[in-house]
């Protein structure tokens, strides 16, 4: 029983990170129908910027804040300089653009930062918490808490603020939204900045546990995408549920079956969901433009 609990803790900690990446996918997809394959690089940027700012003597909380702002800026730049310029491009073209952005950001990061692994100190100590024979790091609580706060804040943002509603409206019907005076470009820009900021926050919270380096983004993006897909593309709650499920599936697979094919779990989930359940668990129907 204690081992099950241990696998579960391990799964939900990593799952919370996947969930935050999935949220990022979801926000951008809602606002622009673009799947941003550079989402994992936002996580990397958050972690790496914080590490390097902290190493330069900036106090950790300020370094973290700056890292989020920088990453949000990169997200906005990506939208402005690439996605907006490619208006009217086919889906294939957009995929290649965001993959290009991901490869580009990784390439720049290994020059601007370095190719080494880095870690941040845990925010509140490293004394494991003992629960039912299993252990949990205090930092895991930070990760879970961070994911929770983001979900609640997003929910409020989308339901309570005019701007949030504008994004939702744009997601529903871009043409109609434009007609009622919503600035679609601004909606897209802010969705990129917002999801970059969320990615960065995830990166900062998780770096004390998982370490970071210039190339951590790819795998995270893939797992996050699997999570978003599992939960149903464009559904924030689905993204969270999907993320946790992928994380737990991996941990259980590694613990009970074999750790050799742990990474395969996410991709098997992707293939299964795509083949049998294209709308995801909680998803809206996949919309398609003719």
């Amino acid at each position: 029983m204690s081992e099950f609990l241990q696998f579960l803790f391990s799964g939900i900690t990593i799952g919370a990170v996947y969930a935050m990446v999935a949220l990022g996918f979801t926000i951008i997809y809602s606002a622009s129908d673009v799947i941003n394959f550079a989402q994992g690089e936002f996580v990397m940027l958050g972690g790496m910027c914080t590490v390097f700012l902290a190493a330069a003597g900036v106090p950790l909380p300020i370094a973290a804040l700056l890292a989020i702002v920088i990453t949000a800026g990169v997200g906005a730049a990506l939208c402005k300089l690439a996605i907006e310029q490619a208006r009217g491009a086919s889906v294939v073209a957009l995929i290649i653009i965001t993959i290009g952005a991901s490869v580009f950001l990784r390439g720049i990061a290994q020059v601007v930062f370095d190719k080494q692994l880095h870690r941040l100190p845990a925010f509140s100590g490293e004394q494991p918490i003992l629960i039912g024979g299993a252990t949990l790091l205090p930092q895991s609580l930070w990760v879970l808490g961070g994911a929770g706060v983001i979900v609640i804040a997003l929910h409020r943002f989308f339901r309570r603020t005019l701007f949030g509603k504008a994004i939702l409206a744009a997601a529903q019907n871009r043409q109609a939204a434009r007609l009622v005076g919503i600035n679609i470009n601004l909606v897209m820009l802010s969705s990129f900045a917002l999801s970059a900021a969320i990615g960065a926050l995830a990166g900062i919270l998780v770096t004390p546990i998982t370490l970071t380096s210039y190339d951590v983004g790819t795998m995270l993006a893939l797992k996050g995408f699997a999570a978003a897909m599992l939960g149903g593309m464009g559904n924030p709650v689905g993204a969270i549920v999907g993320g946790l499920l992928v994380g737990v599936a991996e941990a259980m697979g590694a613990g009970y079956i074999s750790s050799d094919y742990k990474d395969a779990a996410a991709f098997l989930i992707i293939l299964a969901v795509l083949s049998f359940l294209p709308q995801g668990l909680l998803g809206a129907r996949i919309r398609e433009r003719v």
Binding site: A82, Q85, A86, A89, A93, L94, I96, I97, I99, G100, A101, S102, V103, F104, L105, R106, G107, I108, Q110, V111
Partner: peptide, 20 residues
């Protein structure tokens, strides 16, 4: 060689935006 990946990414983006 350090810039190889950055260049690869840039080529992908620029081609798709300006040289479709």
């Amino acid at each position: 060689h350090e810039y190889e990946h950055a260049a690869l990414g840039l080529i992908m983006m620029v081609c798709m935006i300006y040289l479709r």
